[in-house]
């Protein structure tokens, strides 16, 4: 394990029934690094992200975030045990995740969506949580929408609220799970802009994405998943320009056409 790695994934295996989704994944992410995970559907990248946040159990291996092992611990006799719910809740509270389908709470206003975690999981005062939520709304370009309800917002706006909601927990690392895949093409860039800004501010980010131009412009490293393992990784230009791996070459060809259609402004 390298000294400054914030997230450290070691030999993760995960089965869904018979299906062996993750087949020994190793990944280190340094503080402030932006890592883009790419790969075909079903290659395991989303599952890895969900394992890091322990929304998904895994069968073997370890994940450490900021020195704390996620989900399980090995006891004195060397047996792997699930951590208590309380410990896992505490760990989850220190990571932010943004989902493909936004998953805002439909019964709560935008500001209540953002302050829910800080108020209840972090036991912050409502007033200070709202001050911070208002700042975050400004940051994602949605000042004035605090009292709106999710259903009144466009997909791009909802996703930006979801980013603000995750940021409100002051996360050590932000996980993005295909956050633009459910959006209309014209709404993609407003979400990518926010992510770009976050990356520039030095946020540690693991981004599952099909937006290759975003990966190229923003990521420090691109990781290509195939069949449950990391097949290729490196600097964006190394990975994406003239790839040798035939699967990666096919993948890049297929997705570059799409990315050109929704080119990233700015």
């Amino acid at each position: 394990m390298t000294m400054n790695s914030l997230v450290s994934v070691r030999d993760i295996h995960k089965h869904f029934g018979e299906h062996h989704v993750l087949r020994g994944v190793n990944l280190d992410v340094a503080t402030g690094e932006v890592v883009a995970l790419i790969g075909a559907s079903g290659s395991g990248k989303t599952t890895l992200l969900r394992c890091i946040d322990f929304l998904e159990e895994f069968d073997q291996g370890t994940i450490e975030v900021d020195g704390q092992s996620v989900g399980y611990r090995v006891d004195a006799s060397g047996v792997r045990r699930r951590r208590s719910e309380k410990e896992n809740e505490f760990l989850r509270a220190r990571m932010g995740i943004v989902f493909q389908s936004f998953n805002l709470f439909p019964h709560l206003s935008v500001i209540d969506n953002i302050t829910l975690g800080p108020r209840y999981a972090l036991r912050e005062e409502r007033a200070s949580a709202e001050v911070r939520a208002t700042e975050l709304l400004k940051k994602v370009g949605l000042e004035g929408k605090a009292r709106a309800f999710p259903a009144t917002l466009s997909g791009g706006q909802q996703q930006r609220v979801a980013i603000a909601r995750a940021l409100a927990m002051n996360p050590k690392v932000m996980l993005f799970d295909e956050v633009t895949s459910a959006l209309d093409p014209e709404l993609v860039s407003e979400v990518l802009q926010v992510m770009k800004k976050l990356a520039a501010e030095g946020m540690t980010m693991i981004v599952v994405t099909h937006e290759l131009s975003f990966a190229r412009d923003v990521a420090d490293r691109v990781v290509f998943f195939a069949e449950g393992v990391i097949a290729v990784q490196g600097k964006p230009s190394e990975v994406l320009d003239n790839p040798e791996d035939p699967r990666l070459r096919r993948f890049v060809q297929r997705f570059s056409q799409r990315t050109e259609a929704s080119a990233l402004p700015g």
């Binding site: 989850r92 220190r94 909601r165």
Partner: peptide, 8 residues
């Protein structure tokens, strides 16, 4: 998932 991820 969202509720879990906030550490509730």
């Amino acid at each position: 998932d969202a509720a879990y991820s906030l550490g509730l």
